[in-house]
């Protein structure tokens, strides 16, 4: 059944996109903001280090970009796979 195959392809493309996005999500917050902060301590930003910037500002900006990217890409996928709302 091609319809079924296509909806499987749509779903796995979606899951792949979600996974990539969540890796970035975790990297900027738990990674750069907390766990990897000591590694970034050499890069200074306004009187402190890059990890502090990620924890208090950078991660929020990346989150924003991620959500809009996901919404844009999913709307494309909806159309490609013919599952968008008419």
């Amino acid at each position: 059944m091609s319809a079924n195959e296509d909806s499987n392809a749509y779903w796995s493309a979606n899951v792949r996109l979600i996974l990539i996005s969540l890796v970035i999500w975790a990297l900027v917050s738990f990674g750069f903001g907390i766990i990897l902060r000591p590694l970034l301590s050499g890069i200074s930003v306004g009187g402190t280090d890059l990890g502090f910037w990620f924890a208090q500002q950078g991660s929020i900006l990346v989150f924003l970009a991620l959500i809009f990217f996901y919404a844009w890409r999913m709307n494309q996928l909806d159309k490609e796979h013919g599952v968008d709302e008419e």
Partner: peptide
């Protein structure tokens, strides 16, 4: 100071989960 950055990351990062995993 820095230790409470959790509030900033936590209360915004949740929207990524919401947008990707639940809302649609």
């Amino acid at each position: 100071g820095y230790d409470n950055s959790s509030f900033l990351m936590g209360w915004t990062g949740g929207y990524v989960l919401l947008a990707l995993l639940l809302a649609p």
